[in-house]
């Protein structure tokens, strides 16, 4: 599936958080959205996935989801969003409930996705017994169970430590290389953006506007190679310079606002 955002704008009351945002996520692409905090990244994702109706513009999905897809546009949330009163298997089952599937078919899907995400012995564990990284694996397993045609990921690795993040990124890329579903990936982490995406959309400070769209031409599978490392880090540096000026200006504006109040 593909997704086109056309002139998106959104207001919360008198506060404009997004303004005239347009870009597209094409088939089998990973597009990440990066920007200073409070620039409307999560709102953008919620609009793209149909959880919030935009104030202006539209999010248009193109293509027909495969027949097997239970939930074509599926989210993976920041802190995994697991229900504490359900076991790991129960949390994955949430993606399958209310669908025309037999109990046996459900159990098979659950087993398969737990296997794929390395959660085999944990089906009966409760979320409180899991580490942050394990929780996020469950979040990804639940998303996979819905057979998504498009994934919307909201800072999925921001709640885990650096080593777990590295590990999960590798696992996640391996999963993606098999299915190649399109992904819209919101993050504040430059390293994640540069390692995972085909394109990086840099948003300005609030109201979020598209500041720049950076293409990463190197295939994801080759980004760990030492000879491309310098190219990637140069790219990371350029984006960081953009973000830094945005963040500084935002701080300055805040300061002048406070002075005006006095």
């Amino acid at each position: 599936m593909e997704l086109e955002l056309r002139g998106l704008g959104h207001d919360f009351g008198s506060l404009t958080v997004l303004d005239n945002v347009s870009f597209a996520v094409r088939k089998s692409e990973i597009v990440s959205v990066i920007g200073p905090s409070g620039c409307g990244k999560s709102t953008l994702l919620a609009i793209a996935g149909g959880l919030i109706a935009p104030s202006r513009g539209s999010a248009v999905s193109l293509g027909v989801p495969p027949a097997a897809s239970l939930n074509p546009f599926t989210f993976v949330f920041q802190d995994a969003g697991l229900l504490p009163w359900r076991t790991v298997a129960g949390n994955v089952a949430l993606a399958l409930e209310g669908r025309p599937l037999s109990r046996k078919a459900q159990a098979e899907i659950i087993e398969e996705v737990l296997d794929r995400t390395g959660l085999c012995g944990f089906a009966k564990a409760y979320p409180k017994q899991l580490s942050g990284g394990m929780k996020q694996r469950v979040g990804i397993a639940r998303a996979l169970a819905a057979r998504p045609a498009f994934l919307l990921m909201d800072e999925p690795l921001s709640a885990v430590d650096a080593q777990t993040r590295e590990l999960l990124m590798e696992e996640f890329l391996a999963l993606w290389l098999r299915d190649r579903v399109s992904i819209l990936y919101v993050t504040h982490n430059l390293d994640e953006a540069v390692r995972l995406s085909d394109r990086i959309v840099v948003l300005s400070r609030r109201p979020g506007r598209v500041r720049e769209i950076v293409d990463v031409a190197i295939p994801q599978s080759e980004r760990r190679r030492p000879d491309v490392a310098s190219e990637l880090s140069a790219m990371q540096n350029d984006i960081w310079n953009l973000l830094r000026s945005e963040a500084r200006n935002a701080d300055r504006e805040l300061l002048s606002l406070e002075r005006a109040d006095v």
Partner: peptide, 10 residues
Amino acid sequence: PFIRMAQSFG
């Protein structure tokens, strides 16, 4: 967030 999560799964 739980309610929104459930809505996102339809």
